[in-house]
């Protein structure tokens, strides 16, 4: 269970509140107008930005004060998910050991993760030698290796074309289904939300609302969402 307890987030004049829970294994789309605070909400959950008040809990344990790397969470960012000077295998290895002390067994796990994400044989290459879609796959492969119970995706596929994006969402759905991870994903596209996430959290008007069934929300959108969907 992921709990956001009386969270208040402020940044300059901006203010956002959230107070809800999500069951372990839930897949939640985070949707709302730009500037409403979707990414800020995810940075607070991921540990990159401290809330003004309130707590973030996982399975009842308070994680509000933990460093990002110490949380039971993997974040996949919009960009800069890979270090350009390290090989794909090294980038994946960082998900196992941040100082890259890897055993033979770890190397085998990296190969398996590359296989799973359709990147077999790409280990020795540098990120620049991969296409955008392949780079996204590598970021997901590392999330797989980190094997954290919560996966936070901050629009990592926004730069991909529609077909490639659908393929990536399918891959995320498959991986999270197998691992039972809870997934929170920012998206701009209601179609993505419908296809991927049974639940949707609407971020608008200074609040991140409790997740509701995606189909219902989109069928009867509240005024802020209706304005955004157009």
């Amino acid at each position: 269970m992921l709990t956001l307890e009386n969270l208040t987030i402020t940044q300059g004049g901006f203010r956002l509140t959230a107070d809800w829970q999500a069951k372990a294994g839930a897949r939640i789309a985070v949707i709302g107008p730009s500037g409403a605070g979707k990414s800020t909400l995810l940075s607070v959950i991921g540990g990159f930005f401290a809330p003004q008040s309130g707590r973030v809990l996982w399975q009842g344990a308070d994680i509000t004060g933990l460093e990002p790397g110490a949380r039971p969470i993997t974040t996949v960012f919009q960009d800069q998910n890979l270090f350009p000077h390290l090989t794909i295998a090294q980038n994946l290895g960082l998900g196992i050991s941040p100082n890259l002390r890897l055993t033979a067994n770890d190397h085998a796990r990296i190969e398996t993760a590359l296989d799973r994400t359709g990147l077999a044989g790409f280990g020795p290459r540098k990120p620049a030698q991969l296409s955008g879609g392949q780079q996204s796959r590598a970021a997901l492969a590392r999330a797989l290796l980190r094997d954290k119970p919560v996966l936070v995706l901050d629009e990592p596929f926004a730069a991909l074309g529609p077909a490639l994006k659908a393929e990536m969402l399918g891959l995320v759905a498959e991986l999270s289904h197998d691992s039972g991870a809870t997934v929170l994903m920012v998206t701009h596209d209601p179609k993505d939300a419908l296809a991927f996430a049974p639940l949707t959290c609407l971020v608008a008007g200074g609040a991140a609302h409790a997740p509701q069934p995606t189909a219902d929300l989109l069928a009867n959108p509240p005024p802020e969402l209706a304005a955004y969907l157009g």
Partner: peptide, 11 residues
């Protein structure tokens, strides 16, 4: 890369 390093626990 600061956020990426932090998310991977690189210190």
């Amino acid at each position: 890369y600061h956020r990426l390093g932090a998310s991977l626990g690189m210190t």
